[in-house]
Amino acid sequence: MIIGKDQAQRYARHFVLKEIGAAGQKKLLQSKVLVIGAGALGSASIIYLAAAGVGTIGIADYDTVEISNLQRQVIHRKDRTGMKKTASAELSVKELDPDINVCRHDEMITPDNIGGIISGYDFVIDCTDRFETKFLINDACVISKKPYCHAGVVRFEGQAMTYVPDKGPCLRCLLGGVPSPEDTVTCAEAGVLGAVTGIIGSVQALEAIKYILGAGELLTGRVFTIDGLGMNTKVTSIPHPDPGCSVCGNSPSIMSVMDNRKEYEIRSCSL
């Protein structure tokens, strides 16, 4: 591919970075990243992927824009309430750069469709808002050997971690399984601040970009955490997968997400 004059100007600040340059920019323009969830984390992830010139961005969400989303889901706009989040996110991407190819997946991610949806992408970003879906994404990515970036945010806290096949633990190594509803709170119940989701969503976009470029050190075998209120950040090194992990371990019991569908059913009730 040839980088045109417009693109040379648009990515001038990338060209001077030794980790990107013209060759890295071509990689980004030819890459395909799937963002599951066009909410708060997704807003930051999607817009920074688009700005960086990730050529194809998949956006999966089944929800519509509501006015209560706008204090943190900065990719959406007041005049788009009632619109599919995927359509609203696509509009924002196209305003920033009409050359970015957006693939909309206007459906709920399920054990039946996730394999087909993630298969066309180089990297997956989990921007969903529940542990049930986060484990579905984790297991599907482990089983299809797809690198992905996990994250979660509630109140002023959040975490992010990147899974790369055979390079470090998966979410299930760390947590075992989906926590029960009594042990979790959702953003609707506990609240969440947009600026914190922006930090974590940006970390996720950065991980995808580093993966595509082969630059720097990913959050594989490491968990990034932030407490935005105390402004404490930390990277905890957890390098070794759990050999007994039921999806990525030595003798996994979860061989297909379809056979494990019960665990991904939403058990908590909230918005």
Partner: peptide, 27 residues
Amino acid sequence: IVPKSEYDEVVLNDGDTVEIVSFVGGG
């Protein structure tokens, strides 16, 4: 990593270095 199933049995011993990371599920 200490698997969840071993939390009741694994004992903390002098000299151990322990890391505990809390995860949240929102997004």
